[in-house]
Design a protein around this nucleic acid. Sequence first.
DNA 1: TCCGTATTGAACT
DNA 2: AGTTCAATACGGA
Length: 174
Amino acid sequence: MKNNLVELPISTRDGQFIARYSEKGLAELDFPKNGRAELPLGQAAQQRRPTRSNGIPSKIKNWHRATETALKKILVGKKSKLPPLDWTGKTDFQKSVWRQMLKISAGKTKSYGEISIAIGKPKAVRAVGGACGTNPVPVLVPCHRVLAANKKLGGFSGGLDWKRSLLKREGIKF
DNA sequence: TCCGTATTGAACT
DNA sequence: AGTTCAATACGGA
């Protein structure tokens, strides 16, 4: 079996996210492609296309519902329960890093250094950054709550605008 | 094996 | 106070 992922859209006020599910859980989540963090102003282009519900296992539909709820909550700075995540094929190091990030509650931040300490490898700060960059499930795994040591904005896969917006919504100052 | 990385902290203008 | 630089762990080619 290969990338037998089920692809489902999630419409939010920030645009349409794309969620992909494997047989084990949520495997990937993508930012809206044509939607910058430039304040959509409610003019979100909502594409309504025929949904092929056929062939989608009910468990995936269930996960998708959880994902949709979680995503929308987090987008307004609230904590939420997450669907099962499928990190198959990823390294133990990455999984450790992401698990630490899941422990960051809404409205709080951690530095890359703190993450590295938390996983027992204080010197692996840059590797932590690398793991963040390959995080397949942004937002839900709150990589945006990870800042540099002096509380500065690091980088972000989906664009720094996103990171800034998300942090702002959670009332984080930097 | 070599290179890049979403870092860091210390040294140096 | 701003900038440069080496160190360091890990993943991908």
